[in-house]
Structure formats: structure tokens, C-alpha cells
């Protein structure tokens, strides 16, 4: 492969600019390899996050030619290198430096969601029995690697900056995993309706498209959650039943 030119966003919250770097892209290399090469050749202080280099930790999220992606899972031979390849940080979060953003808001949102609360163990050995088919759905959600790419593309956060009132697709997935957990007894639908702002989501499915774990965020997590919220808060019959029936 001939040398490839990158335009990488450099700078901090005060100002940013694109700087160009050229490096050799060998066979099978991914974007993160090129960034590392640039670090060791010409920009030792170029800031980026990464850990596993195998698509498992969700650290290396960035926007490559405008597409939100994991840098470690984006092969150079998949992208157009006839033009300089741009790499930018995620846009939904405050910039720290270069490709690194402050994602701490996500951690605060998660903490505000009520934790897992299992029913009492009911198997003779002091644990529980669960069938595989009953956990398949939850296991899909639990594949999430917290890369926050879905948070990055969601227009409610990216364009409308509704961070204080909208939990974002990642946390709908998290909540759905808890709500659909066969052992869980907690009720988070009120949280989703109010603090979580699930009503802001208008099902554009942009989040689902970028998820590197192929979680069907919108269809499997958000829509069922929305339906439960509707049932719980707007359906008079359900409300009536709720008065007599323990939750779940």
C-alpha cells in the first residue's frame, strides 16, 4: 500500500485544528495501527484511548471520515484512502484533547439507574434456575462494550444536547437488560419516563446502525421499553391491576 495521509483533529477545548500526517499502511492494518505509528514516528503526544485492540473494550471510539467507529476494528483497506483520511473525536461529549473526550457523564447516568435487585433464590441449592431461551434477549444487551458510539450518533444528544434529561441509547440498553432480566424485581419505568427521557427518542435507529456489537438497540431494547412505559403510565387497566398485583 502507498503511504496514507491522515487529517487528525488536534487540540483541546480552547481550540482544535486538523493536522496532516503521512504514514505507511501495511497489509491488514487497522486505523488504530496507523495512529500508533504516527505517535511513534511524528506525534508522540497525540492523545487517543485504546486497550484491547480487538473490539472488546470499547475504548477507541472515534469518527473516521465522519463515521463513528472503533479504530481498532476499522481496516485500512475498507476505507477510501485516495483522499486524506480524517479522524475526529466523538462529538456528543466535551473534548479533553485530540481524540479523547470526557465520557464521565455516561458513568453518572448509569449510576442514577436503579441497580439489579433479584428475587429470593428459589432453587434447592440456594440459587435460581433460568432457561437459556429466557436469557437470550438479556444476553444480547449484555454484549454492550460501552463504546458510546450510539450516544455519539443520537441526535437528541449530538444536536440537541439533551444530556441532562435524556439517558441515551446505551442506557436504554442497560435498563432493558435489567428490566428483562428473569430474576429482577425492580421497577425502572418511572425513571425511564422522567429522568431518562425515553420519550425524546423518535426511533430513527441511527444508534442501532453504528453499534459494533450489532445490538438491535431500537427494536429490541427501546421499543419494548417505550411500550412498557405506555402500559404502565397511560393504560388505565394496567394501572388498576397494578394496585392489586405485585410487580412482575
Amino acid at each position: 500500500m502507498p503511504p496514507v495521509t491522515f487529517r487528525i483533529s488536534r487540540g483541546d477545548k480552547t481550540s482544535t485544528e486538523f493536522r496532516e500526517y503521512t504514514t505507511e499502511a501495511g497489509e491488514g492494518m487497522v486505523v488504530l495501527d496507523c495512529v500508533h505509528q504516527i505517535q511513534s514516528e511524528s506525534a508522540p503526544d497525540l492523545a487517543c484511548r485504546w486497550n484491547c485492540k480487538a473490539g472488546k473494550c470499547g475504548s477507541c471510539s472515534a469518527e473516521i471520515n465522519g463515521q463513528p467507529r472503533l479504530m481498532c476494528m476499522t481496516r485500512m483497506d475498507m476505507i477510501d484512502t485516495s483522499q486524506p483520511v480524517t479522524i475526529e473525536p466523538l462529538k456528543s461529549f466535551p473534548l479533553i484533547r485530540d481524540l479523547v473526550t470526557d465520557v464521565s457523564w455516561n458513568y453518572r447516568v448509569k449510576k442514577s439507574i436503579k441497580p439489579f435487585k433479584p428475587r429470593k433464590p428459589d432453587a434447592p441449592d440456594g440459587t435460581w434456575r433460568m432457561q437459556q431461551k429466557d436469557v437470550d434477549r438479556v444476553q444480547e444487551f449484555r454484549k454492550c462494550i460501552e463504546c458510546f458510539l450510539c450516544q455519539d450518533v443520537c441526535h437528541v444528544l449530538r444536536d440537541h444536547h439533551k444530556h441532562p434529561e435524556f439517558a441515551g441509547p446505551r442506557h436504554f440498553v442497560y435498563t432493558a437488560a435489567l428490566e428483562m432480566h428473569p430474576l429482577d424485581t425492580e421497577d425502572r419505568l418511572g425513571q425511564m419516563k422522567h429522568e431518562g427521557g425515553i420519550g425524546y427518542c423518535n426511533i430513527t435507529k441511527c444508534c442501532t446502525k453504528v453499534c459494533p456489537e450489532h445490538i438491535t438497540i431500537t427494536d429490541n431494547a427501546i421499543i419494548p421499553l417505550k411500550e412498557r412505559v405506555v402500559d404502565e403510565f397511560y393504560d388505565p387497566l394496567t394501572r388498576l391491576f397494578r394496585m392489586f398485583k405485585p410487580k412482575k
Binding site: F116, T127, Q132, Q139, H181
Partner: peptide
């Protein structure tokens, strides 16, 4: 392992649900 399950981990299951 059982403690992880009690804290919310969802392991793959045997036919009898363990």
C-alpha cells in the same frame, strides 16, 4: 460464580436451567 449471578451476571445455561 454464584455470587456473580446474584449480582446480575447472566451465564449460559444447562438444559435444566443451571
Amino acid at each position: 460464580v454464584k455470587e456473580l449471578e446474584a449480582w446480575g451476571a447472566v451465564f449460559d445455561r444447562t438444559k435444566d436451567g443451571r
